[in-house]
Amino acid sequence: MEALKPRIFAGEGTPESDWLNWNGLAALHEIGPEALVPFDSRAVFVAPHPDDEVLGMGGLMARLAKMQRRLALVAVTDGDASHQGSSLWPVERLRTERPVETRAALQRLHASNVELTRMQIGDGQVRYAESHLTERLKAMFRSTDVVITTWRLDGHPDHEATGRATAQACLATGATLIEVPVWTWHWASPGDARVPWSRARRLSLDAGTHARKRDAVQAFTSQIEDDPSTGRQAVLSPHVLDRLLRDFEVVFV
């Protein structure tokens, strides 16, 4: 069955050209930020790692900031395990630098007034702290909040655990949940039955917002540059960014 196919993360994944040539993306129902986040609601972005909030949701965040919506960002981890064995980016440096990169990215989105909370859960360890994260989120959320986080079946363990914890906290508090695919674009294929396309909506980005999002990603120096100390290419290599820096974003409502 299609729904039982494994999610494969090897190689460069599904080319962006395949996604853009698929009529299904263009056919998604369009939705605006004002419909996603009503005037009297706070938008709470819950990101497993620094950069997920920009890669998956940066355009939405920028548009909401321009509309003067109340914004909050929960950084679940500090992303300090992104460069295993690196002498250029050891854990200690990443733990310091990645939150700095986040602040710079938010400024480039014109969203520097975001209320930021760092959970400081271990990078790669979110599933083991899922209950703890759920309880902390429950204490933060309000019934009028609209909470945006990574999809519960996105493929990355931290993304999925964050999605599950956020969903549980929304259920307990009455907050509205919106999920965002990030790694999905790598392992899935156009029309993939494992993806809830019926819940998918398309958020178009005007030229200014799109430019701000692209500029914000450049703030994540640790992620966009190759690592000569290990010989590994950038975590956010060009083929990854191609799929995440479109002039629209997709959310699951």
Rank of each mutant, 00 (worst) to 15 (best):
V147D: 00
A167V: 12
R152G: 08
R202F: 03
N113L: 11
A129K: 04
A193E: 12
V114M: 12
L171F: 13
E135Y: 09
W185A: 04
T144V: 12
H132I: 14
P157L: 03
D145P: 09
T117F: 15
D154P: 11
A169C: 15
L109Q: 03
S112L: 05
T173C: 13
A139L: 14
S143D: 09
G163Q: 04
V114Q: 00
R142E: 11
E130D: 10
R194F: 08
W197E: 05
R142W: 06
M140D: 07
H156C: 06
R152I: 11
I178Q: 05
P196Y: 09
I121E: 00
N113M: 13
A129N: 10
E179H: 06
V114T: 06
P181G: 02
S131G: 11
P181R: 01
R199P: 02
I148Y: 02
S204P: 12
S204T: 14
W185P: 06
A111S: 07
L153G: 08
S204Q: 13
D145V: 10
G191L: 07
D154K: 03
G122K: 04
G174K: 07
D158N: 05
L153R: 00
T162A: 04
R201C: 00
D158Q: 06
D123V: 14
T144Y: 02
V114P: 02
A139Y: 10
L171C: 12
E130F: 06
S131E: 14
H156I: 07
P181M: 02
A167D: 08
H110F: 05
R152E: 12
R199L: 10
T134E: 15
Q125K: 14
W185R: 03
A167W: 00
T176K: 01
D192V: 06
A169F: 10
L133C: 09
V114H: 00
E179C: 03
R199D: 10
R142T: 14
E135H: 12
R118C: 09
S112Q: 08
P190A: 13
W151Q: 05
P157I: 04
E135Q: 14
I178K: 00
P196F: 10
A200L: 07
E130W: 00
T150M: 06
D154N: 09
R152T: 15
V180T: 11
W197A: 01
K138H: 11
L171T: 14
R152S: 11
A207D: 11
V180W: 01
R152H: 07
E130P: 13
